[in-house]
Simulated scan of single mutants.
Amino acid sequence: MTRLNLPDGAVTLQAGPAPKATGNWNRIAYAAAHVVADPLADGDPWLDANVDWDRTLAFREHLWSLGFGVAEAMDTAQRGMGLDWSSSLELIRRSTALARDKGALIASGAGTDHLAPGPDVTVDDVIRAYEEQCEAVEAAGSRVILMASRALARAAKGPEDYERVYTRVLSGLQQPAILHWLGEMFDPALEGYWGTSDHMAAMDTALSVIEANAAKVDGIKISLLSAEKEIAMRRRLPEGVRMYTGDDFNYPDLIEGDDRGYSHALLGIFDPIAGVAARALSQLAEGDKAAYHQTFAPTVPLSRHIFKAPTRFYKTGVVFMAYLTGHQDHFTMIGGQESTRSTLHLADIIRLANSAGLFTDPELVAARARPVFAARGVEL
């Protein structure tokens, strides 16, 4: 029995079941994967994107082995919060080559993050930036996830500019893309995306873009943390266009769906809960909805905690879980992001992950947790 005296109360760590490869699922499930920093790189950790390529790619192999697709170079990989475009492209190239060798599913983020928003940036500049990244992603052999653009949010005068940009960029793609509507809770610079701060009015614009370019759209991932808004949009999508839930608060119900449809998934929370999520998705495919909810339910409090406001700092919890469970040997992040959550926040991650059965090796978890908390003045 492994016991930790966490600062907000002691907890006894329990061994959960080992993750295993599963059968065919009836939902497409992408896990947005994190990057592993190289803690021994000779550079400025706040400024330089020093990636441990071996450990980063090994984690993608772990996700593929469980049945997930990988959503590469997204916000979970600290895109725009430490991972720049040049490092993102290197990551996309390496991951796509590995996916090709394994016959695994991958889609990768293309945005405009090499174009700094500013008063002199025009909509045409945004189009050129999008096209540059899309061409590079497709040249690497990956499907595109068309990420929301901070530069477009700054340059656009109204919904018509979004329609113009997306129609132009989608028209040049070789394969249908997944659009990504990332809410301002994940990135404050995206406030007012689609030309308005009213999410329902913004939805009208997004749907107009999708309907006009349906042949070029595989689906849309929305990350608004509102089940009601996702369902409303899902029911209005053109036939053949998928909804990919990005709702890390309400994913079990959204993936299950209702008598009018369901969501596929492209989720950051699938990174730390991959083993349990794979089991739940297998149970859903087998038609055992009671077991599906029983498996997923304990992960929801953990997800809501990891993604609590300020939501953009959720990556810290994702990487902390990867460290605790042995997927990397340190709790160091690109950009020094390991410092963005409090000691009590990290303690609650341990407590909630334990309740969700995510720790297969409690002794390893305890050994990993102790030095992190000791560095923060807490002896476990």
Rank of each mutant, 00 (worst) to 15 (best):
I178S: 09
T340N: 04
R304F: 06
A285C: 02
Y193R: 11
A201E: 15
P19I: 07
R312M: 14
E286N: 12
M200Q: 14
L40R: 13
V169A: 07
A32I: 02
A280D: 01
S171E: 13
T360D: 13
L358C: 12
V126K: 05
R164I: 02
Y292I: 01
D361L: 01
K102Q: 14
M81E: 12
H293L: 08
G317A: 07
A285N: 04
G261W: 10
A356R: 07
P188D: 06
Y130W: 03
E230M: 04
V126L: 04
F68Q: 10
P19R: 11
A153D: 03
R60D: 14
F320E: 02
A206K: 06
A136C: 09
I255F: 12
M321C: 14
V276I: 14
I28G: 04
G287D: 03
M1E: 13
A18G: 03
I273L: 13
A140T: 00
F68R: 11
A99I: 02
L146I: 00
L63C: 12
G195W: 10
A10W: 06
W64C: 06
D253K: 05
D38V: 01
G195F: 10
M233Y: 12
L344V: 02
G118F: 00
A356Y: 08
H264L: 02
L324M: 06
Q337V: 00
D84Y: 09
T343L: 15
I106R: 10
G82D: 02
V126H: 07
L146W: 01
A31Y: 11
E138V: 00
F320Y: 14
S142R: 08
A291G: 10
P272G: 09
Y30D: 00
H114L: 09
G195N: 06
A369P: 01
A153V: 06
S303A: 15
A374K: 14
G16F: 06
V365E: 10
T122S: 15
A148P: 05
A15M: 05
D204C: 03
A49P: 12
Y314F: 15
D247K: 07
A15P: 04
S108W: 03
V165C: 05
Q294W: 04
R55Y: 02
Y244G: 03
P298R: 07
M147G: 00
D161W: 08
A232N: 07
A31C: 11
A202F: 09
V169K: 05
T332A: 15
M147E: 13
S197G: 10
P176G: 12
A148W: 00
D259Y: 08
Y30P: 01
A15R: 15
A110K: 04
A277W: 08
V126I: 07
T12W: 11
V378E: 14
G67Y: 11
R279L: 12
A206N: 07
A278E: 07
S339H: 14
G109Q: 08
G69L: 12
R351P: 05
F320Q: 01
L13W: 10
W53L: 13
E286A: 15
S108R: 08
P19Y: 11
E286H: 12
F186P: 00
